[in-house]
């Protein structure tokens, strides 16, 4: 839930990048972090294993500056993708205002995507929210790979609710800011 601090004139919103293991959630945050101008640079905080897999979460605070007198901040988080960490994902999702579901476009990852999306629906409902009305954007990542499934097939299995979807190749930065723009506007529209 977004927090509006009237005294400090601040607005904070929380956006979580969710999806199966190795789909590119951390890569999205790393690209965004690499593009922040030096003057506004904040640290990208990662709690990862020795092999660089996310263990708990990555965290990137983004300062958008003042809008109509309110200092606006988006806090971006990723969850660990591996199936084992379901409880950790619930913990990171707590209080989220919106979710980017990062789907791995590779042909052999379709089932993992579907299972992860189902789990997300369960976890959002556990927070007492209606999944159908929850701000969500789909990102089809790794579109540059030759093994990527055609978009209509991914739509058929992952997008029955017709969320806005963005095609991306997070490693090269393609579509990363498109996705961030769509989810940010969606979250702000719900304030």
């Amino acid at each position: 839930m977004a927090l509006i601090n009237v005294a400090a004139h601040e607005i904070h919103c929380k956006i979580v990048y969710y999806g199966p293991g190795m789909c590119g959630k951390t890569t999205n945050l790393q690209y965004i972090h690499s593009q922040i101008p030096q003057a506004a640079k904040t640290d990208l905080l990662s709690i990862a294993t020795e092999t660089e897999r996310t263990l708990f979460f990555d965290f990137l605070p983004l300062d958008l500056g003042k809008v109509r007198g309110f200092q606006t901040r988006f806090h971006l988080y990723t969850v660990p993708g591996q199936v084992l960490y379901d409880r950790t994902r619930v913990a990171v999702l707590s209080g989220a205002d919106g979710v980017v579901f990062v789907a791995d476009s590779r042909r052999d990852k379709l089932e993992e995507n579907v299972n992860s999306l189902k789990e997300l629906a369960r976890n959002v409902q556990k927070m007492g929210k209606r999944f159908q009305a929850f701000p969500l954007v789909l990102q089809y990542n790794k579109r540059d790979l030759s093994t990527a499934l055609p978009v209509p097939i991914m739509d058929k299995y992952l997008n029955p609710l017709h969320w806005t979807r963005c095609e991306a190749s997070a490693l090269h930065g393609t579509g990363v800011f498109d996705t961030l723009r769509v989810i940010s506007k969606l979250v702000i529209s719900k304030l």
């Binding site: 839930m1 977004a2 927090l3 509006i4 601090n5 005294a7 205002d97 007492g128 209606r130 009305a133």
Partner: peptide
């Protein structure tokens, strides 16, 4: 309990103080 559908919590000036 807080309404789970509520999307923003406004903390007024006096309460922040």
């Amino acid at each position: 309990a807080l309404d789970p559908q509520l999307t923003a919590m406004v903390v007024p000036l006096a309460e922040v103080a």
